[in-house]
Amino acid sequence: MKKFETHTGVVAPLDRKNVDTDLIIPKQFLKSIKRSGFGKNLFDEIRYLDEGQPDQDCSGRPLNPDFVLNKPEFTGSSILLARTNFGCGSSREHAPWALDDYGFRAVIAPSYADIFFNNCFKNGLLPIILTEAEVDELFNAVAGEPGMSLTVDLVNQKVVSPSGQEYGFEVDAFRKHCLLNGLDDIGLTLEHADDIRAYEAKRRESAPWLFDAIK
């Protein structure tokens, strides 16, 4: 998993409540055998004017000019600013996979759906909770200065605006540790690689047949 310490990037404002996982990545794209490559279909329904098909080349599709990510000021944005209950709907990990693949590193919203919130951490994406008033303030700031950047400082748990305004946020200590060090579940388990090897060495003596190769 990618490490997350501090990140500075363009903020894209998505002014909608209850953005669900189907809106983030519609179900016709979930049959894929991959967990990468979903970025081109992120927000497909509101991003393009036609109906998207799996495996389609999206470069020639008609774009919805009103959708935030299609506006030139927001191309290359990596921080998503959203409203309450972001990521509601299904438990699929495809939603964070799609956000990550598009290039987002953090989401800022007043609240999230539980499973989505958990899945973000598993995939190196930082979901930040700010108060509704603070989120409002950021929406206003972006409206006044489209294309502005924010800095997300996970070490000190704050979001910093170009004018120097700071917004503190909470994050679970264990999850922070994982993100700072780029540890997913697998990374964490591999921290105990010595224990695993020690177990194997001992077990190999008491039950060697379990180490016969399947070949």
């Binding site: 579940d185 697998i186 388990t189 591999l190 690689a193 695993i196 194997e200």
Partner: peptide, 8 residues
């Protein structure tokens, strides 16, 4: 994936 990577 976890089992593939860690055998645990």
């Amino acid at each position: 994936e976890h089992v593939l990577a860690t055998q645990c």
